[in-house]
Amino acid sequence: MNPWLVLTLAGVCEVVWALGLKYSDNFSRLWPSIGTIVIAFLSFVLLANAMKSLPVGTAYAVWTGIGALGTAIAAVYLFSEPVSAMRVTGILLIVIGIAALKMA
């Protein structure tokens, strides 16, 4: 499988487990906690698989970037987190950084 696709899936899993942390309520809710742990493990496995073919620094930076970007966007919709010019600028900078690493 294409390592960039695997890395993208790992990043999506990172978004899911990051949001799962909120739903697990400090791991006090059983099923959200189990789901969060399973998805986190899957995210790490996919990341490790992608790193077989991609440079470690690039793969890790893209993985965390996808996670940060996706989580920030999802949090606005799911948890009504505020949107400000500074937050949007930060998200755009993350996207630019991910694109630059992909092209490098």
Rank of each mutant, 00 (worst) to 15 (best):
A104P: 02
S43E: 01
A68V: 09
N49L: 15
A48W: 11
L92T: 12
V45Q: 07
A59P: 09
R87H: 03
W31K: 06
A85Q: 15
W17H: 11
T64M: 11
V12Y: 12
L101R: 04
A74S: 14
C13W: 01
N49P: 03
S53E: 06
L19E: 00
P55S: 09
S84D: 13
L47D: 04
L30Q: 06
L69D: 02
N26M: 13
N2E: 13
V83G: 07
L30E: 03
I91G: 04
L78H: 06
I98W: 00
D25C: 05
S24T: 01
L46Y: 06
N2Q: 08
V45H: 05
L78V: 07
A61I: 03
M1P: 11
A50M: 01
V45E: 05
A85M: 12
P82N: 09
I96H: 06
L47H: 07
N2A: 08
I94W: 00
L93F: 03
A99M: 13
T64L: 08
G20A: 08
A48D: 06
V38Q: 12
A72N: 11
I39G: 11
Y60K: 07
P55A: 01
A104C: 04
I66N: 10
Y77V: 11
T64I: 12
E14K: 05
L101S: 03
G57H: 14
Y60A: 08
M51D: 12
L7A: 03
A18R: 02
L46C: 13
M51R: 15
G35Q: 00
A100E: 07
F44S: 06
W63V: 00
A59W: 03
W4N: 08
S53R: 05
G20N: 03
V76Y: 02
I91H: 00
G35C: 03
G11C: 08
A74I: 06
T8M: 12
W31P: 11
A100Y: 08
E81P: 15
W63I: 02
L69E: 04
T71H: 13
G90Y: 10
I73N: 09
V15M: 03
Y60C: 10
L92I: 13
G90S: 10
P32E: 00
L78D: 05
G20S: 08
T58I: 11
V56S: 13
A61K: 10
D25Q: 15
L93P: 04
V6W: 08
L54P: 01
I66C: 10
L9M: 14
V15Q: 03
V88P: 06
A48E: 04
F79P: 02
W31V: 14
Y77I: 10
L7M: 07
V16Q: 09
V83E: 10
E81M: 14
I39Y: 06
W63L: 01
L5V: 07
T71V: 13
T36K: 13
Y60H: 05
S80Y: 09
K22A: 02
G20V: 00
T58E: 09
P32A: 14
Y23H: 13
A50G: 02
P82S: 15
W31S: 13
